[in-house]
Design a protein around this nucleic acid. Structure first.
Length: 678
DNA sequence: TTAGGGTTAG
């Protein structure tokens, strides 16, 4: 007995492999090897110094294995992150006829959670209940981790409420769990309850709260959590600071995000990425790309997340040259993993080079659903509905399972190409064959494809017949109908849609513009004024339209009637010359696209100086004849510009590509690829 | 229990 204890103490203090081996040998020669305590301790000791193979060897050589030895081995695997081995060993133990205890259950359930094998985890949990560990708080804590990781917060809450002793880790798991599935208010509620129970939170629970605020997007809440951190004088490490940067940036408060970022005592690649992605996601592409350069200047090496965010910025503004250089950089660094290749494909497609997107797509052998969706969406935005459909067929052939986003992209692509029958067919297939419940976005696609083709009555019938189970007020559906009514001058249904849209109180200035445009085209100036008032009331400003064009690798942006530009006079001359030629060919300005109730002559001039025309004029001035022009616009290209650019492409004999907020228009020899399903 | 990144309507 004394000797056994002595060996145990000796093993505990032993940190070197050579000494461990000697003790191992001594144990064998003294005949104490098969005694429970020293053998178990030997397994843990080998695991502790990282030699899992020797630990397993000891375990395998034991003539008799008690529960302690099994648990020691299970824990050893778990410590090393070998979770599959943990689960394997657990089942071996059960089939050997041993009765698992609290430790075996706790560790195995944790392993299942780490493997994201929720089914297996719940099976082990049921066994724990059978064996009488229902009320064991250690097991419950592990189960909590399993359930929250799987997003099953209702079940998690039930387990949590049944726990007798709730420690900080359990409370944190609940706070973080709710935050992760986007239930920010619930998350904050749990935190408040935790405070009522007299628990003081640490940095980890605050991270969960920051995540909840990121999701809720309420600035007051964000500031209050940030204030709480400062008041309580909690240790603010790089992880917390980075989360704060992300929280402010994701909610569009880039100034605050930037100032938190600047005041960080330590920054790492994740902090830089959070800020870059914030700028990119909010449409500040230039700033995002400048930050990517700045981080390299201070010797912080961008990783794939930072590069993906930078690529997103390039996609946003159509900055092909920069996008290409990031692609080259990724290739040089040989870190071309899945996520970044999807982002590169998206970038090429959104910068107008569909062929490069396709070439890259074909080189990827193992395609996941997002990659397939990206390629389908890419064809869709370029108006290549048939190609989108053929990629979809390929996808099915390789046994990939399409998801709701696949159908959103496919339906939108078919609609933009005017393939209405195909669109209706696949909408029905989605519901009946693939059992995907249509969501608002799917209805919006189908309504859009019908309304775009002038079939507004059919679209209205569909709206009246649909049942939406998903949360959503149907705003986008009515907006799609309204847009079709606007283009096809269907004023009575249009008015119905416009009223519906206003009733639903849009939070997007683009939608207000759509309604105002509709009333303006119907010459209902009183209503136009009312929309403006409603917009002001909702605290919304009209987003100024701007267009961008890449000339000799540099990006140039233009606002409507942008007189400040150094080449303004030359651009005016080109526009006037083109106008003259267009008119002689039969073009008449569609002045209904001008919102203001002003003189006809002024309207004509306003149309001629829309930002896309300035960008085209600048492109024509500064590129060789025959060069393709790619313009990116932040709003929808107006009906008059669409018509005018057709003429311009013929007069100057150039291919002009205009990408507006959602799709591409390829103009060549006086026609647009969209076949005027614009 | 611990931060950032890819597709999806108008």
């Amino acid at each position: 007995m004394w000797l056994t204890k002595h060996f145990k103490t000796l093993l505990s203090s032993c940190k070197q492999k050579s000494t461990l081996s000697k003790i191992h040998a001594l144990l064998i020669t003294s005949g104490l090897f098969n005694q429970r305590n020293p053998a178990t301790k030997l397994i843990s000791s080998y695991a502790h110094i990282g030699d899992i193979k020797l630990a397993r060897q000891v375990f395998d050589e034991l003539p008799q294995r008690g529960i302690d030895a099994w648990n020691a081995m299970i824990v050893a695997y778990s410590r090393m992150g070998f979770y599959s081995e943990v689960v394997d060993l657990y089942w071996k133990m059960v089939s050997d006829g041993l009765k698992p205890d609290s430790s075996s259950f706790t560790v195995t359930i944790k392993a299942c959670a780490s493997l994201c094998d929720f089914e297996m985890g719940e099976e082990v949990w049921h066994q724990a209940v059978e064996y009488g560990y229902k009320d064991d708080d250690f097991v419950a804590c592990s189960v909590l981790n399993l359930l929250t990781k799987g997003g099953k917060m209702v079940e998690a809450k039930a387990v949590f409420e049944g726990m007798k002793r709730k420690d900080l880790v359990c409370w944190t798991t609940m706070v973080t769990g709710f935050a992760k599935i986007g239930q920010g208010m619930e998350s904050i509620g749990v935190f408040r309850e935790m405070q009522r129970h007299g628990m003081e939170g640490d940095g980890v629970v605050m991270l969960g709260l920051i995540q909840a605020c990121t999701d809720i997007g309420d600035m007051k809440m964000c500031l209050s959590v940030h204030g709480h951190l400062i008041r309580r004088n909690l240790q603010m490490d790089v992880v917390i600071h980075t989360s704060l940067v992300d929280m402010y940036a994701k909610n569009g408060h880039l100034g605050v995000a930037y100032s938190v970022f600047c005041n960080m005592p330590q920054k790492n690649v994740v902090s830089w990425s959070a800020l870059i992605s914030g700028y990119a996601q909010n449409g500040f592409a230039k700033e995002a790309l400048e930050l990517l350069i700045e981080m390299q200047r201070v010797r912080c090496r961008p990783d794939s997340a930072s590069l993906v965010s930078a690529l997103l910025a390039c996609s946003h503004v159509g900055y092909l040259k920069k996008g290409k250089s990031i692609h080259a950089y990724i290739l040089r660094r040989q870190e071309f993993e899945h996520v970044s290749s999807t982002a590169v494909i998206d970038m090429y497609a959104k910068c107008g080079v569909l062929s490069s997107a396709r070439v890259l797509f074909d080189t990827i052998s193992c395609k996941d659903v997002i990659l397939w969706n990206t390629m389908i969406a890419s064809y869709g935005i370029h108006g290549h509905g048939k190609d989108a459909l053929s990629v979809f067929h390929e996808m099915i052939k390789t046994n990939s399972v399409p998801d709701d986003a696949t159908f959103a992209s496919l339906l939108s692509g078919l609609g933009h190409s005017g393939l209405i029958e195909q669109g209706k067919h696949w909408f029905n297939e989605m519901i009946n064959r693939y059992k995907i419940e249509p969501r608002e976005k799917h209805y919006a696609c189908v309504v859009d494809m019908l309304a775009r083709a002038g079939k507004v009555e059919e679209a209205l019938d569909l709206i009246n017949s649909m049942k939406i189970h998903e949360a959503g007020n149907g705003m986008s559906i009515w907006a799609a109908l309204l847009s079709g009514c606007h283009n096809h001058r269907k004023f009575s249904i249009g008015e119905l849609a416009a009223k519906k849209v206003l009733e639903l109180q849009p939070d997007d200035s683009g939608i207000y513009s759509l309604v105002a445009n509709f009333f303006a085209s119907a010459k209902k100036w009183k209503e136009v004024g009312e929309v403006r008032n409603a917009m002001r009331k909702a605290g919304m400003k009209k987003v100024p339209g701007y267009s961008m064009v890449e000339v000799k690798g540099k990006l140039h942006a233009f606002l409507m009637e942008d007189k400040s530009h150094y080449q303004y006079e030359e651009m005016v001359m080109i526009i006037e010359k083109l106008d003259h030629e267009m008119r002689s060919m039969g073009y008449t300005p569609k002045t209904e696209y001008v919102l203001h109730d002003v003189e006809e002559e002024v309207k004509v001039r306003m149309l001629s100086f829309h930002s896309e025309r300035l960008a085209i004029a600048f492109g024509l001035l500064n590129t060789e004849s025959g060069t393709k022009l790619v313009i990116t616009k932040n709003l929808r290209v107006c009906g008059d510009c669409h018509e005018a650019i057709k003429y311009i492409s013929k007069i100057v004999d150039r291919e002009i590509v205009v990408r507006d907020v959602k799709r591409f228009h390829h103009f060549k020899h006086g026609v647009c690829s969209c076949g005027d399903y614009w």
